[in-house]
Amino acid sequence: MSIGLWIALAVSAAVWAAPFVFVVLTSFKGPGEVNTSHAWELPKNWVWSNYSTATEVGDLWTAAGNSMLIAVIKVPLGLLLSAAAAFAIARIRFRLNMIVLIAFTVGALVPVQVTLGPLFITMLDLDLLDSRWGIILPYLAFGVPFQIFMLYGFFRAVPDELEEAARVDGASLWRQFWSIFLPLARPALAALFILDFVASWNEYAMATTLLQSQRNATVPLAVRSFSTQFGTDYGALNAFLVLSVIPVLLVFLIFQRYFVRGGFSGAIKS
Rank of each mutant, 00 (worst) to 15 (best):
residue 33 E to K: 07
residue 179 S to T: 12
residue 203 E to C: 04
residue 20 F to I: 15
residue 70 I to Q: 02
residue 179 S to V: 08
residue 201 W to Y: 05
residue 188 A to N: 03
residue 174 W to R: 11
residue 54 A to L: 10
residue 151 L to A: 07
residue 110 V to K: 09
residue 192 L to W: 06
residue 72 V to L: 14
residue 186 R to S: 12
residue 232 T to I: 05
residue 153 G to L: 01
residue 4 G to F: 10
residue 116 L to V: 15
residue 135 I to D: 01
residue 155 F to G: 01
residue 225 S to W: 04
residue 140 L to P: 01
residue 90 A to H: 05
residue 180 I to D: 00
residue 15 V to N: 01
residue 2 S to G: 15
residue 52 S to P: 11
residue 160 D to S: 11
residue 44 K to Y: 02
residue 228 T to M: 11
residue 81 L to V: 15
residue 45 N to C: 00
residue 42 L to I: 08
residue 122 T to G: 12
residue 237 L to Q: 11
residue 82 S to T: 02
residue 134 G to L: 02
residue 37 S to N: 11
residue 20 F to P: 03
residue 96 L to H: 11
residue 132 R to T: 14
residue 239 A to D: 09
residue 241 L to P: 11
residue 240 F to M: 12
residue 111 P to M: 06
residue 171 A to E: 05
residue 215 R to S: 11
residue 269 K to I: 01
residue 84 A to R: 12
residue 207 A to P: 04
residue 80 L to Y: 01
residue 215 R to I: 11
residue 202 N to I: 04
residue 175 R to D: 06
residue 67 S to F: 01
residue 255 F to D: 05
residue 99 I to W: 13
residue 97 N to C: 05
residue 78 G to A: 08
residue 63 A to E: 03
residue 127 D to P: 00
residue 151 L to G: 06
residue 35 N to R: 12
residue 174 W to I: 14
residue 60 L to H: 02
residue 149 F to L: 10
residue 245 V to W: 03
residue 210 L to W: 06
residue 66 N to Q: 08
residue 141 A to R: 02
residue 212 Q to H: 12
residue 52 S to W: 09
residue 8 A to Y: 03
residue 106 V to H: 03
residue 8 A to V: 11
residue 255 F to R: 03
residue 108 A to P: 13
residue 91 R to W: 01
residue 191 A to F: 01
residue 223 V to E: 07
residue 231 G to N: 04
residue 131 S to Y: 04
residue 4 G to N: 11
residue 14 A to W: 04
residue 139 Y to P: 00
residue 66 N to W: 00
residue 90 A to E: 03
residue 146 F to G: 04
residue 42 L to F: 13
residue 168 V to D: 02
residue 16 W to C: 10
residue 263 G to R: 05
residue 180 I to L: 12
residue 13 A to C: 10
residue 228 T to N: 14
residue 19 P to R: 08
residue 136 I to K: 06
residue 142 F to N: 04
residue 112 V to W: 00
residue 204 Y to C: 05
residue 14 A to I: 12
residue 197 F to Q: 07
residue 261 R to E: 14
residue 24 V to K: 01
residue 121 I to S: 14
residue 199 A to P: 13
residue 26 T to V: 06
residue 198 V to E: 07
residue 205 A to Y: 08
residue 36 T to M: 08
residue 207 A to D: 07
residue 214 Q to C: 01
residue 132 R to Y: 06
residue 124 L to F: 13
residue 224 R to S: 15
residue 137 L to I: 15
residue 34 V to A: 04
residue 261 R to K: 13
residue 215 R to C: 00
residue 260 V to R: 08
residue 184 L to A: 06
residue 221 L to F: 01
residue 210 L to F: 10
residue 182 L to W: 08
residue 106 V to K: 05
residue 224 R to Y: 13
residue 267 A to I: 15
residue 44 K to P: 00
residue 121 I to N: 13
residue 171 A to G: 02
residue 234 Y to S: 04
residue 138 P to V: 07
residue 74 K to V: 09
residue 152 Y to S: 07
residue 182 L to G: 04
residue 184 L to N: 09
residue 94 F to M: 10
residue 17 A to N: 06
residue 210 L to E: 10
residue 241 L to M: 13
residue 93 R to Q: 14
residue 124 L to H: 13
residue 125 D to R: 15
residue 155 F to I: 10
residue 147 Q to M: 15
residue 62 T to W: 00
residue 218 T to L: 07
residue 60 L to S: 06
